Amino acid sequence: MTNPILKENERIDQLFSTDVKIIQNKEVFSYSIDSVLLSRFPKLPSRGLIVDLCSGNGAVGLFASTKTSAKIVEVELQERLADMAERSIQLNDLSDQVTMVNDDLKNLLNHVPRSQVDLILCNPPYFKATETSKKNISEHYLLARHEITTNLEEIFSVARHALKSNGRMAMVHRPDRFLEIIDTMRQYNLAPKRIQFVYPKLGKDANMLLIEAIKDGSTEGMKILPPLIVHKDNGDYTDEIFEIYFGKNSRANG
């Protein structure tokens, strides 16, 4: 029996700690651990308005929806990914809370009021668009991974106009762009406040960076949080990651 909400080559995955189900297609786009960690990194406002930029198939906003009553607006340029996200919203009966906007993030203020957003989440393309960008991957992955349709300056410029004063922005990115991210945030009156490096294993170099900034915030008081290790030496998730994926009591019950 096929699920009528699914299209060809799609499957439904579940983040067990939340019961949220996400429509995935490995040929088009699948969320990974960066989306999960981003949805759990900032303190979510209990109400108000959250925007998820570069939302892909909607995973970050959908995961965040279980921890807040705030309205969530997801913004995704690619029609195929936005369609997957819209069907995931329906699948989880979240249409009253979560809205998908299929548009360029440059047009965000056509969809949300200026200076009224409490929190912006963003899992952007990580790589600069160069001649050596891997062109053999699908167009969907190419746009999701490379700064072809947007870049840091554009994202932070949009965030500055959409966020309330003292509103926050949380982003996941690559450590090799760390200084560029901080410099660009400051150009747009976003003061970095919380930073956490994510490591695949103990003793390995960091491969992810979580960063949270406050609009119009003081440039003082930035915190570097303890490192987040994803895997133990044997390949299993560390306790902290296991809890994020499966919930606090699942290991004891497993």
Rank of each mutant, 00 (worst) to 15 (best):
H111R: 02
K164V: 03
M1E: 14
F41K: 01
V73H: 02
L108M: 04
V158Q: 12
C54H: 12
M169H: 05
P200R: 08
V230S: 09
V101L: 07
E180G: 08
M100R: 00
I22E: 02
V98R: 09
L179P: 00
F127P: 00
R251K: 15
A213M: 06
N151R: 04
V117I: 05
E86A: 15
A129W: 15
I229G: 00
D183H: 13
A85K: 02
K135A: 09
S32M: 01
G254Y: 14
I89F: 12
L179W: 04
L53Y: 08
L62R: 08
A59D: 00
V36A: 15
L15D: 02
S95V: 09
R174I: 14
H231S: 10
K134Y: 12
I137H: 08
R168Y: 05
D183A: 15
T99E: 06
R160A: 08
A70N: 05
V198R: 04
V60D: 00
A206V: 11
S218W: 01
E74Y: 00
M185I: 05
D118Y: 04
Q14S: 08
V36W: 13
A213N: 03
D176M: 08
K134F: 07
R80T: 15
D19A: 01
L77I: 15
T132H: 15
Y126L: 04
L108K: 05
E153I: 03
I229R: 05
N92M: 10
R47A: 13
R80E: 15
F197N: 03
M84G: 01
K21A: 11
P227D: 14
I22W: 10
R87S: 09
K21N: 15
D52Y: 12
I5M: 03
Y31S: 09
E147K: 09
P175M: 12
F16Q: 04
E154M: 09
G217P: 08
T66D: 02
I224P: 00
P226A: 01
F156P: 02
F156Y: 13
E76L: 09
D176L: 01
P226E: 06
F127I: 03
Q90A: 15
D96V: 06
G217V: 06
S165Y: 04
E220M: 13
K26R: 11
Y126V: 04
Y141A: 10
H146T: 07
E243K: 08
N102W: 09
S95G: 07
F156M: 03
R160Y: 07
K248Q: 14
N249Y: 11
K223E: 13
D216L: 01
L37T: 04
D205K: 07
C122G: 01
V28G: 00
L190I: 05
V51D: 11
H146P: 00
K71H: 09
Q196E: 14
K223S: 12
R40E: 11
D52L: 02
P200E: 07
I72M: 08
E27F: 04
D118R: 01
G221H: 02
N123H: 11
S138W: 09
A59M: 03
Y199D: 07
L44V: 03
K43V: 10
G217R: 02
F246L: 04
R47D: 14
L163P: 10
L228S: 11
N189V: 00
V20Q: 13
I244W: 13
L62F: 11
L202K: 15
N151A: 07
T68R: 10
S39H: 06
M208Y: 07
E131T: 12
L202W: 07
V36P: 08
